[in-house]
Amino acid sequence: MSNPKISPVTGHYVTIDVDGLEYKVFYLENGTGQPLVCQHTAGCHNHQWRGLLEDEEITSDYRVIAYDLPRHGKSDPPENTEWWKEEYQLSADHYANFIIALCDALELEDPIFMGSSFGGNIALQLALRRPDRFAGVLSVEGADYSPGFYLDWWQHPHANAAQVCASGTWDLMAPQSPEADRWKTWFYYSQGSESFKGDLHFYSVDHDLRGKLGDIDGEQCPVVMMTGEYDYLTTPEDSERTANAITNGSFINMPEIGHFPMSENHPVFRTYLIQALESLQKKKASVTA
């Protein structure tokens, strides 16, 4: 075979300990420069970042790392517990501790954290908890509080959970996004029903930063929020309200895109992402100057 089309994106596993649980974590990476650590949305996996991972303009300045949270994609549930005997309910504490442990294990210096949806919410938690550990966070489709999606339907045994998760999140995407990319996202969502509901325990139940946003040290760890106008769960108004309550926080409205912007339409998302990265770097420079 001549001229095989081999992507520069590489995959690795790293074993880490978080709160006594041992995880073998899979991550994809490409690029050099400041680490840009990317969290997928609930019930999904790191292929949502497939466009970003091969975006040469961004990977020329950033080391893009997109991991699978345990129980997602190629990251298995804990190696050292009988996890099948417990209900999975992700907590803010464990989720944040996981991300910090991963960054420590990979010896990342001044990483920028970016997450979407429940990743956007944990971005805010990280900025609150460990402003010293991150150069800044990009909270995509995030808010201080996002109730209403911790539903039994995601794993109801009398329905096809794969299709309920995939089609139940279909409306979170914008009709303008390319059909092929929306269907890829649908396909990812058909794979994660057993983790989706447990993830949403964090998203809709345990995550609640109402009244705490003022405690985020947005000088040390700048926060940029960005939300698509077709997001019915965390609306642009929710994110803007949240950003306005954070010191040094800012908000970017994203027309004609939805709740999975990096996965449903990377070419549109990247224009806002570049703007967000520039904004974050300026905030950081103005503080350190």
Binding site: A159, Q163, L233
Partner: peptide
């Protein structure tokens, strides 16, 4: 239907399990 139910005046009523079974 999810978007309009969460954010507008749409209501999903009756045997929602049947809706979920045929959601796609």
């Amino acid at each position: 239907i999810w978007a309009a139910s969460f954010q507008r005046d749409m209501k999903l009523e009756g045997d929602i399990l049947v809706l979920m079974q045929n959601l796609r």
